[in-house]
């Protein structure tokens, strides 16, 4: 008998490929329309909330505020994505750190809006988190001392929020890895060895450009890698496609064209001037609750304090009751207590 009998896995269940089983494939892939819809919804919800807040602060004052559009939000995020590369170069982080941080940024802004969280801070934290999740950790102190006007707390304050927004799904599959695989494959082709490594470098540059686009939220890493490769070496790419018996696939060819056009049209860092205008308007339409010192901010802090205080009091009372209980030398707790209260808990999270 084979060891297959040990676990009674349903034999009919289709075995997923590694990629198909990944959280990336299951939770972080969208159609173009869905992406636009998510961003529009987030933007609209944020505008509604912030408008109300501004009105409570000072009635009538929201009339002249020009809120950001979803596209403007994307533009601003894109600018900071393009800065991740510079920082990574400075710290000499491996490519995986850079690519991962960029993915985190994009995913974060599918759950949040720049009007709540400015991409500059999010970028710094996303990058720091990526060093850890890719197993390239550096100390926070070392990290922040090299970044002007940044304290360790600036980075730590957002770490939890970012991890949460990512659904704690830290593993990312990258197109540059897929490109490396294709490159190794191609060198195995009969005349593949003749390819210059300059072609790989050029293709890698296209993969990097693709990081400024939405490609990774729509396509698979290998589709992006292949598109990048076929941009610089169409013949080799075609041979690789034949090798994999995919030359008949109309879907693949259509997808490749879409990605190529995406890289060509959106794969450039945004024009700083136009972003500056967006950033200037953002100062006026940010969520006041998140602006330190504003009335709304203070009100929110006060409310949080009140709730925390309430919890502390409740906990102290419970603790007191528990001590009284324990001090009885004929304590009734020989039998295990029911509905055990979490006295030892060092916080009050429930």
């Amino acid at each position: 008998m084979s060891p297959a009998v040990i676990n009674e896995a349903p034999p009919s269940e289709k075995k997923l490929s590694l990629y198909e089983a990944s959280t990336q494939c299951r939770n972080w892939r969208y159609s173009t329309e869905r992406l636009a819809q998510i961003r529009a919804t987030l933007n609209e919800a944020a505008v509604t909330i912030i408008r109300t807040k501004i009105e409570t602060d000072e009635p009538g004052s929201s009339r002249n505020v020009s809120f950001l559009t979803p596209n403007e939000e994307v533009l601003l995020v894109k600018l900071y994505i393009s800065k991740i590369g510079q920082l990574c170069g400075y710290f000499r982080f491996p490519e995986e750190v850079e690519a991962t941080a960029i993915t985190y940024m994009k995913r974060f802004y599918l759950q949040n809006t720049v009007m709540d969280w400015h991409p500059k801070n999010v970028m710094l934290t996303a990058l720091f988190l990526a060093t850890k999740t890719t197993n390239n950790p550096i100390s926070l102190e070392q990290y922040t001392t090299h970044i002007p006007k940044t304290t360790p707390n600036d980075v730590l304050d957002l770490e939890f929020l970012i991890a949460q927004s990512l659904g704690f799904e830290f593993a990312v599959w990258h197109a540059h890895r897929a490109l490396w695989g294709i490159w190794l494959d191609i060198q195995n082709l009969p005349d593949g060895a003749a390819l210059a490594s300059a072609e790989y470098d050029a293709a890698l540059a296209r993969v990097r450009a693709s990081r400024l686009t939405d490609a990774e939220l729509i396509y698979t890493p290998s589709q992006i890698a292949l598109a990048a490769f076929s941009l610089v070496a169409p013949d080799s790419a075609a041979r690789w496609i034949t090798l994999k018996n995919l030359s008949e696939s109309a879907t693949l060819l259509a997808v490749l064209d879409e990605i190529k056009s995406m890289i060509a049209h959106q794969g450039l860092p945004p024009d700083v001037e136009s972003v500056r205008e967006v950033d200037r308007r953002l100062k006026l339409c940010k969520n006041p609750e998140k602006v330190v010192g504003s009335k709304a901010y203070l009100a929110r802090k006060k409310e949080e304090e009140r709730i925390a205080e309430e919890k502390r009091t409740k906990k102290a009372e419970l603790q007191k009751a528990a001590v009284n209980d324990e001090q009885d030398p004929f304590g009734t707790n020989l039998a295990p207590k029911k509905g055990l209260v979490d006295y030892d808990d060092d916080d009050d999270d429930d």
């Binding site: 720091f128 988190l129 850890k132 999740t133 197993n135 950790p137 100390s139 926070l140 102190e141 360790p152 980075v155 730590l156 770490e159 939890f160 991890a163 704690f168 830290f170």
Partner: peptide
């Protein structure tokens, strides 16, 4: 002091 620690991150 360095935020989320490595073993927690790895495990998750």
């Amino acid at each position: 002091k360095d935020g989320l620690d490595m073993s927690a991150i790895r495990e998750v």
